[in-house]
């Protein structure tokens, strides 16, 4: 438990998790870092709050923004002593993206990654559903899209190009 300086009482780790659910993914602002599985753990260590996060992609240019957004959100609830640490193990997998996030991602026209259960290689050639018309009749155009975590597809049914969040 951490003492809140503006005397709203003690803040539990659960309160912190809830607050972190407000911090959105800078590149997909309809989903939170918690829903994306980027925030792995929240701990209290010697009076400091340690937030453990893991990058989706090693070169993700949004990492610094995420860190400062996490700090800013916790500062807003009066928590100043925050360490945001990056961990690579276990490596982030798109299977950690929650059901709620998958629905929201699809609503903005981004196809969610196929669930693969451990080895994403197995789903790389599996059909991707068009987020606009739900057709399976889609074609991969490029394995790199507008960010390192997206691929470009074309829907042969509704003639709509769209991106997929890559399975990883």
């Amino acid at each position: 438990m951490v003492r809140n300086p503006d005397s709203r009482g003690a803040i539990s780790l659960q309160d912190i998790w809830r607050a972190l659910d407000d911090v959105v993914d800078p590149e997909i602002p309809v989903v939170s870092l918690v829903e994306m599985g980027i925030i792995r753990d929240v701990m209290e260590v010697g009076g400091r709050i340690v937030v453990k996060m893991t990058p989706t992609f090693a070169g993700c240019p949004a990492l610094e923004v995420m860190e400062s957004d996490i700090r800013a959100r916790l500062e807003k609830m009066g928590i100043d002593l925050v360490d945001v640490v990056r961990a690579l193990d276990p490596p982030w997998t798109s299977d950690w993206i929650s059901e709620s996030a998958r629905r929201k991602i699809k609503q903005i026209g981004l196809a969610p990654p196929q669930v693969h259960g451990g080895d994403f290689i197995n789903v790389l050639d599996a059909p991707v559903t068009c987020p606009y018309c739900d057709s399976f009749n889609t074609t991969l155009k490029n394995s790199f899209g507008s960010t390192p975590c997206r691929m470009i597809y074309y829907c042969n049914n509704c003639s709509q190009p769209f991106e997929q969040f890559r399975p990883l």
Binding site: F57, A58, G59, C60, P61, F144, S146, P148
Partner: peptide
């Protein structure tokens, strides 16, 4: 153009 920019970002991160 987009793919190469993103490949470059990946390698930069590595």
């Amino acid at each position: 153009d987009i793919a190469f920019a993103n490949l470059a970002v990946d390698e930069l991160g590595h």
